[in-house]
């Protein structure tokens, strides 16, 4: 409790007046009488005011307490692919015409995987698969197709007929398209055709070269001493 001199004075004064009041109970004749009854009412109002202030303080008070956390469960580890989800969530790029650098990175990451999946699922050569991705004929889903074919997202808007649809529905974001593309590829990957063609896929070197280290440096580096030191710093 903070020792406030104002408060002490107030308290002392209060005690003094209380003593007077108790004295007046004992010997009424000692104290001068108060003129008006409405002074009492006035004091009553002052008290009510104080009461209101107290109520307000109650509503403003939140207080602090010790936060104990949750020791019952062990700490959770990251799931694979979390950084992609984060990127997709952060990528609020709207249906613009330009493809931005995060988009490019995403496409570059997804393309080889897509070629692999499509060539296995549709039982065709990688080159054919690439063509199908570029023109969108690999899937019936227009959003998934648009991710690789570069079709303008604005054209994919659903509610183009109604006035409100045209105004409010700005079309899917690049992130939405990416998500649909991944889901569609996942679905294709599970089809019996893709499973059967399991080991037949071209350009396996892509699996290594196209991806990068967590710190962004490509790691097809030769195993020589003196090459660029790539400290693969752990995350967090």
């Amino acid at each position: 409790m903070a020792v406030n001199p104002f408060r002490t004075a107030l308290a002392a004064l209060g005690v003094a007046v209380l003593a007077l009041a108790l004295a007046s109970l004992a010997a009424p004749s000692l104290i001068p009488t108060v003129s008006e009854a409405f002074v009492v009412t006035g004091l009553g109002l002052v008290l009510a005011l104080f009461g209101a202030v107290a109520v307000r303080r109650r509503y403003l008070a939140s207080g602090e307490r010790t936060a104990f956390g949750t020791p019952e469960s062990r700490r959770s580890l990251p799931r694979p692919g979390t950084e992609v989800d984060r990127e997709l969530a952060a990528n609020r790029v709207g249906p613009e015409t330009r493809v931005t650098p995060p988009d490019v990175a995403l496409i570059e990451r997804l393309k080889p995987v897509a070629v692999d999946v499509v060539s296995r699922a549709l039982n065709c050569a990688p080159a054919t698969a690439t063509e199908k991705l570029d023109d969108g004929s690999w899937t019936d889903d227009p959003h998934a197709a648009a991710f690789f074919s570069g079709q303008r997202a604005a054209e994919l808007r659903a509610g183009q007929d109604s006035f409100f649809g045209a105004v409010f529905d700005r079309g899917p974001t690049r992130a939405d398209l990416a998500r649909r593309a991944i889901l569609e590829l996942s679905r294709l990957d599970e089809t019996p055709a893709a499973e059967a063609n399991g080991d037949v896929s071209g350009a396996p070197d892509d699996a290594e070269r196209a991806s990068e280290n967590s710190d962004g440096t490509p790691d097809g580096a030769a195993d020589e001493p003196g090459t660029k030191p790539e400290p693969e710093a752990s995350e967090q």
Binding site: G81, V84, D85, R86, E87, S186, D199, P204, D206, A207
Partner: peptide, 27 residues
Amino acid sequence: DVTDTSTPGRALARLERRRRLTAARAV
């Protein structure tokens, strides 16, 4: 295999892993 398909990011991780397995088999 600790991947699954519960979110797009995880589904992508699964697809990439499968590709790596294939690449390993290829050599």
